[in-house]
């Protein structure tokens, strides 16, 4: 017995359309680089391209956090707040508590992991739907980060609520995380690149990644196949918290102060990167490569528009357009037929 069960063949025009759709984001990216390069030659200079990557790094990192939670089947809305919290914690640790760079970073990352575990607790123990639980965490953290400094940004010499002034300062080794370069490439770009490769390898090439993907794709099926799905999803939330916390550390190191509004906009930009990533290579699911491409795509677009003197307030509009087009490519009509 060797009965063949095959899918019906795909017509040629459809195959072409599919290929176009598959690489659409790359075509658009190349087109954008060309148009911006012709309109403003300085755009294509290496320095500018590196600065695009530099400004994209944190969005990409937080995009990775969203992506990993999404692959595990959970939305994590708290990552922007986690980044802001870690920004404030690392600043507070150095400026007020006088800790060193390593201890401050460790403290911030620990906070991120704890928030991830807390999200897991809300979702798996209290069975709150993931969107609502992480939205709750978002508000909790948004308030929590303001408490130690009474709502003020943290800078050396900060007047504390009890009237005394803080006498610590940002450690040079800490600031180096955001400001140093290697062979001309900013350190944050290297860190994020390395982590992105690691995340890609773990999610796409290891057994763990396949099981996490199965858990997010169909939790019941994964559980019935013997996967410890809650453990996997919990680890995904913790990883998401850790990555977001690292994003906060990078911002603090780059800016050199604990800015209370430093986390603004991070959530939406990183979610946008992850969602645009759905369209990359027609993945139609959260994926690491797509998220990085999505973040770079938005970065190139915004940088180019800025160079062409497009007003900053119309940039959000354009970001929204890009997102809608990408989602249209992902989910729109004419895509490969699904049962």
């Amino acid at each position: 017995m060797n009965t063949s069960l095959t899918l019906s063949p795909i017509p040629r025009w459809r195959a072409t359309a599919q290929a176009l759709r598959r690489y659409a984001l790359f075509f658009l990216l190349a087109l954008m680089l060309m148009v911006f390069g012709v309109a403003e030659p300085a755009f294509l200079r290496l320095n500018n391209l590196l600065s695009i990557l530099q400004s994209t790094a944190v969005d990409a990192l937080l995009g990775l956090a969203v992506t990993i939670a999404l692959i595990g089947g959970g939305f994590d809305l708290s990552i922007g707040a986690v980044a802001a919290l870690s920004l404030m914690i690392s600043s507070y640790a150095m400026v007020v508590l006088g800790l060193g760079a390593a201890a401050s970073v460790a403290l911030a990352l620990l906070a991120g992991a704890l928030v991830g575990a807390f999200n897991g607790l809300l979702v798996f123990r209290l069975r709150i739907p993931d969107m609502l639980a992480t939205l709750g965490t978002l508000f909790l953290l948004g308030g929590l980060q303001l408490l130690p400094s009474a709502g003020r940004s943290i800078t050396p010499g900060l007047i504390l609520p009890d009237g005394s002034s803080a006498n610590g300062s940002f450690a040079p080794a800490f600031l180096a995380i955001g400001r140093s370069e290697w062979q001309g490439v900013p350190l944050p770009v290297l860190i994020v690149g390395l982590l992105a490769w690691l995340a890609w390898f773990v999610t796409e090439r290891t057994r763990w990644g396949r099981v996490l993907c199965a858990t997010g794709g169909n939790e019941a099926a994964a559980r019935l196949a013997g996967a410890p799905t809650v453990r996997y999803r919990l680890i995904a939330y913790i990883a998401s918290g850790l990555l977001a916390a690292l994003g906060g550390v990078i911002i603090a190191a780059r800016v050199g102060r604990g800015d209370v509004s430093g986390g603004n906009g991070l959530l939406l930009d990183s979610v946008a990167a992850a969602l645009i990533g759905f369209a990359v290579l027609e993945a139609r699911r959260p994926n690491v490569v797509g998220t990085v491409v999505g973040a770079v795509f938005v970065g190139v677009l915004l940088n180019g528009l800025t160079m062409l003197n497009v007003s900053f307030y119309s940039q959000d509009l354009i970001k929204g357009l890009v997102l809608v087009v990408a989602l249209g490519l992902t989910f729109g009509p004419g895509r490969a037929h699904r049962l």
Binding site: R210, A214, G217, A221, A225, G226, A227
Partner: peptide, 19 residues
């Protein structure tokens, strides 16, 4: 309940071993 829709048939065949 039998598989993960966005994974390939090959991956679904191996789901038990992977998990």
């Amino acid at each position: 309940l039998l598989g993960v829709p966005e994974m390939t048939v090959a991956e679904n065949l191996l789901l038990g071993w992977l998990c």
